[in-house]
């Protein structure tokens, strides 16, 4: 059975290095590649009724926006690599969602860039990367 590498995508310059690294890895081990973009979303925030009413529409728009701006251009640029690449976009908390997708698609490794999040919230609640390392059931590679 061939291996599957899951790469977290956020559309930043720094993130591109993680993608390049994953491609090198995938070529070496003839692995499949899954690019996953997580749109930050929590089911426990408070919303007005008007936001609730439009939520479905906004959700579709968010997903389409990410496909057009980030995912599709990236898939196009990688088309010549000769690898089997799938792009996924979903809502949720970043670490939880990446782990969920990794389990669902039987991934053997998760690759993410170091996310330059230095807010107070990160100090209190820990970063996405830290959470990923603690919760993951498979090896996690962090590309600086």
């Amino acid at each position: 059975m061939s291996e599957t590498i899951l790469v977290g995508i956020d559309g930043t310059e720094e993130n591109r290095r993680a993608v390049d690294y994953a491609i090198k890895q995938a070529k070496r081990s003839k692995a499949k590649l899954i690019l996953a973009y997580v749109i930050k979303w929590s089911p426990y925030t408070f919303q007005t009724a008007e936001e609730n009413e439009r939520r479905h529409k906004h959700r579709e728009e968010d997903i389409q926006f990410v496909h057009e701006r980030v995912m599709d251009p990236m898939l196009d640029s990688l088309a010549s690599e000769g690898l089997e690449i799938t792009g996924l976009v979903r809502h949720g908390q970043v670490a939880d969602s990446l782990i969920y997708l990794a389990k669902k698609h039987d991934a053997t490794e998760i690759v993410v860039g170091r996310i330059g999040d230095k807010s107070v919230k990160t100090l209190i609640f820990g970063s996405v990367v830290a959470k990923l390392i603690q919760l993951s059931h498979i090896p996690v590679t962090i590309v600086p």
Partner: peptide, 9 residues
């Protein structure tokens, strides 16, 4: 995911 949750409603 990403739709209005029961909690939010």
């Amino acid at each position: 995911p990403g739709e209005v949750s029961h909690f939010q409603a």
